[in-house]
Design a protein around this nucleic acid. Structure first.
Lengths: 336, 336
DNA sequence: CTGTTAGCGCATTCAT
DNA sequence: ATGAATGCGCTAACAG
């Protein structure tokens, strides 16, 4: 209780206390754009005054003047989904490394809410926008760019979009998964897709079709939710209709399948071999551990931030490597 | 490509186009604080001009003038941890319902990084701060309050802190878990604690001790990570030292235990009954599904936001209910 | 009911 | 090398 909550110190306060002008103090605080005599700077002057007053530059004022906030908006379909959550975490980290603050918003898979969030972020004068949506939605990046704000899509770009997009190599991932399951002697490899074939996850279903190269392998469908996949699995097991080898479009579904199999008394990988396609951290500690084609989320995040801040052809915009197969127990490998 | 990225329209632009003053336009945009003739407002005037120019109020300028940004800073230990991630999601939602934008930062369990984030958020003139740390750290809320910015701790408050804190009722949760396991006939109930007994999770270990009321029940320890718990479990099973009934301090550990048990061939709940104490969404779809004492994360988030924005005694600051037991299969209940 | 005007805190140009 | 003065876009007091 030394001091009552007083008005925060401003540049003017520091200047007065240091017996200097606001211009000089500004030059000192920003190391430029003009030189300041070392004596003025240190010797019982500017720096000292700033420290004594516990001066903290007001970024709002700075933003108004310099037309740049140092804040980037991150629009997510839903951070509760571990895939998006992990992506968000990497994006926030990459942004922080570039000295940007992250304004985060969840659209809950709603195109309207996504639109609203973008509107708010634009009003907040963000320096850029990273958009991670599940599928569909308006071309909000175009809207941002019309307002002079750069934007990047990650994971999914709406059909009508033309802005840069960073996505994983789904074809390679699916191909890898199919090949691995076949190496276990599975002639037929079923696929658990989403409810509709929209978006990049829907694309995986097409990749599976072309990878198996035949038309009689089983195509299963359910929502991208653990509970839905678990229910489907219990039902299939009860009807004796569960195929022996399965690729799931997402980790969420794979985890649901494992839960359903456990509840139905079906052993994995004994009675069912499973490979998933995201490779989020969650997949490493399921029972049994999931074999996955792991998407390089961190590389995707770094590339997205590079493209956003430096343009698509900058050196900082390193390429995204293909998914890599991580062999664990759910496919039948290992001492399971 | 209809228009090249031009300077965004300002209040002045709208005023000029509508043939009105900036004051009137401001009154219209904000519905106040003074009345405006309906004719001026609608009839081919202000609203029309704003729409034609695609006017979007600059919140930075507004913030500078009104000394309030409409942005709240959320400092997290680590959003990758599903417990914190779920909490963050609820907090963002509660903040959105109050028309606040959320600036999110992850401290990665580092006190230094947490300090740095708070500094940045304060410089960004946030209207408030929500701090979710694992344990320890400086009393950053006090620092914020010294700068005139309200702050709330969620989950954990550092020992030296005096700011409001919203936390779960750990004692009740642990007691519930112990009682349930005993009802399954388990005389002894082991506990898997964290590496040190710091923070609220450490508190759970003390609650367990008092709940079992004896000194010879097994106390296990490992890091709050799935991998650590899985490794510990494999080791214990290999040595034949795994107790038959176990309460884990966190869901992360419980999931690790399940993974370890699966890898080691130990059946749950057959050979080991497990109850966990967080109840994050993840716990519902493990194999087998986890019985948990579920923390009311959503209520905690709402209360935190209520306390932050309206003060601790406001009506909006509804109380946090105790944890509720969710019975699933890992304890031995159900048709497992 | 509406117009004019003075700052909010800072970066920067123009003088010195 | 430094100081004085201007304006970023907006809100709200102050005049009509």
């Amino acid at each position: 209780m030394t001091k009552r909550a007083a008005r925060a110190a401003t540049l003017t306060d520091v200047a007065r206390r240091a017996g200097a002008s606001t211009a000089v103090v500004s030059y000192v605080m920003n190391n430029g754009p003009r030189p300041v005599a070392a004596a003025t700077r240190e010797r019982e002057r500017v720096l000292a005054a700033a420290a004594e007053l516990n001066y903290r530059p007001n970024r709002v004022a700075r933003a108004l003047r310099s037309r740049t906030t140092g804040v980037v908006g991150l629009v997510l379909a839903d951070a509760s989904n571990p895939y998006f959550g992990a992506l968000a975490r990497h994006i926030e980290r990459a942004l922080g490394a570039r000295d940007k603050l992250t304004l985060t918003g969840n659209a809950d898979y709603s195109a309207d809410r996504q639109q609203d969030l973008v509107e708010r972020f634009l009003a907040a004068q963000v320096d850029g926008l990273v958009i991670v949506s599940a599928d569909g939605g308006a071309d909000v990046a175009a809207e941002a760019e019309a307002a002079g704000v750069p934007a990047v899509y990650v994971h999914n770009r709406p059909a009508s979009g033309h802005s840069p997009v960073v996505s994983a190599d789904n074809d390679a991932a699916v191909h890898t998964a199919v090949t691995h399951l076949r190496s276990h002697g599975h002639d037929r490899v079923a696929f658990l897709a989403g409810p509709h074939d929209a978006g990049p996850v829907g694309h995986r279903r097409a990749a599976w079709e072309s990878a198996v190269g035949r038309t009689d392998d089983t195509l299963l469908r359910c929502a991208y939710a653990r509970a839905a996949a678990a229910a489907l699995t219990r039902d299939l097991v009860a009807r004796g209709a569960m195929p022996p080898a399965l690729i799931t479009a997402t980790d969420e579904q794979a985890i649901g399948v494992l839960a359903g199999a456990s509840a139905a008394g079906l052993s994995v990988p004994g009675g069912l071999a499973v490979v998933s396609l995201d490779g989020t951290p969650d997949s490493a500690h399921t029972a049994p551990a999931l074999t996955v084609a792991e998407q390089p989320l961190r590389a995707m995040a770094r590339r997205a931030v590079g493209v956003l801040l430096d343009g698509a052809d900058s050196a900082s915009a390193e390429a995204v490597p293909p998914a890599s197969l991580i062999v664990r127990r759910s496919c039948g490998c290992g001492s399971g």
